[in-house]
């Protein structure tokens, strides 16, 4: 008998793999990570190393203990670690906090829900919310860049009447904030890279940012300032586009992004919290199954009901 493989079609596959997609996200975040080291010196580097390595380690240990197939090689835990680091304030305390955050993100939010593709909430966003709630004093102190540790208020928390940073400073990230949420320029560049690589599509970031700009204008705020300050860029380009916790259809993505924009603008206007991106993400994450259910594509050849 000839040894021939019998299998189901198709017999050829596209080159894209999960790990390649994750690698692209890592590449896209690199300029931002490097810029954060420039702005906040070695503290930033240590936070990134602590966050990424503990995310990988927690996933490895979880798989080891629960005797699951090792999933670390898909690099999604590296992405989570990197995004989590970008969400941390540039303080020495963040090195320890990022390890706690990594535990929340990887073990509680991701692996306990079944691992990649199964979690309901964005791991990095959930970890940030957890840390802000549990260690609020350490998570809301920000350092001005290139100052060797002078604390300052973030652009969104500056009291009325005081001098606001210029658009250019916001664009280049020369404002206080967490590691990766200050520099719009590198975040946007990474986002364009991801779109060229077809890792993400324009719908979520553009509609999210657009909705916030529109609503803050309606609320009498400066729209350009609103989208450049705070976690808008990081949240909309890298966190809201997380495959697992966002809808799968185009229509769903549009609804989701508009919802995010509405939440963020409202939290910023009416809430006591000056930020709002991470909270909006968690809230909209919870609605994704519902959005998916109502945005199922129209099947080819379906006869319209009259």
């Amino acid at each position: 008998m000839d040894k021939l493989i019998v299998s189901s079609s198709p017999h050829i596959k596209d080159k894209a793999t999960t790990s390649r997609i994750m690698l692209d996200v890592i590449i896209a975040l690199m300029p931002t990570a490097i810029l954060s080291v420039y702005y906040f010196s070695y503290v930033s580097a240590l936070i990134i190393v602590a966050s990424v390595s503990s995310c990988v380690l927690f996933e490895y240990l979880f798989n080891l203990i629960t005797k699951k197939k090792h999933s670390e090689t898909d690099l999604s835990c590296v992405v989570t670690g990197l995004i989590l680091a970008m969400n941390m304030p540039p303080l020495k305390s963040s090195i320890i906090l990022s390890i706690i955050g990594a535990f929340i993100a990887i073990v509680v939010i991701k692996m306990l829900f079944g691992g990649i593709g199964q979690n309901i909430f964005n791991p990095a966003a959930a970890a940030r919310i957890f840390l802000t709630t549990a260690f609020s004093s350490l998570m809301t102190v920000y350092v001005a860049p290139l100052t060797d540790g002078v604390t300052a208020a973030t652009p969104l928390a500056i009291p009325k009447g005081e001098l606001l940073p210029s658009y250019l400073d916001l664009f280049l990230g020369k404002t206080p904030g967490s590691l990766g949420e200050t520099a719009a320029v590198t975040l946007i560049a990474g986002g364009i890279y991801l779109m060229i690589r077809k890792v993400i599509t324009w719908e979520i970031p553009v509609i999210y940012i657009g909705t916030v700009a529109l609503l803050s204008f309606a609320f009498g705020q400066d729209p350009l300032y609103s989208i450049l300050a705070g976690g808008m860029m990081l949240g909309s380009i890298y966190m809201a586009t997380d495959y697992t916790t966002s809808p799968v259809t185009r229509k769903g993505k549009i609804v989701y992004a508009a919802g995010l924009g509405l939440m963020t603008a409202s939290i910023r206007k009416f809430g006591s919290n000056t930020e709002g991106v991470a909270f909006s993400l968690l809230f909209m994450n919870a609605l994704v199954p519902l959005i998916d259910k109502f945005t199922v594509k129209k099947t080819f050849g379906r006869i319209k009901k009259k």
Partner: peptide
């Protein structure tokens, strides 16, 4: 490996399926 919900299959399906 596990589905990552990237939605590429939804975009590719010529019959508009999920």
């Amino acid at each position: 490996s596990a589905c990552i919900r990237c939605g590429r299959c939804v975009e590719a399906c010529p019959m508009g399926l999920m």
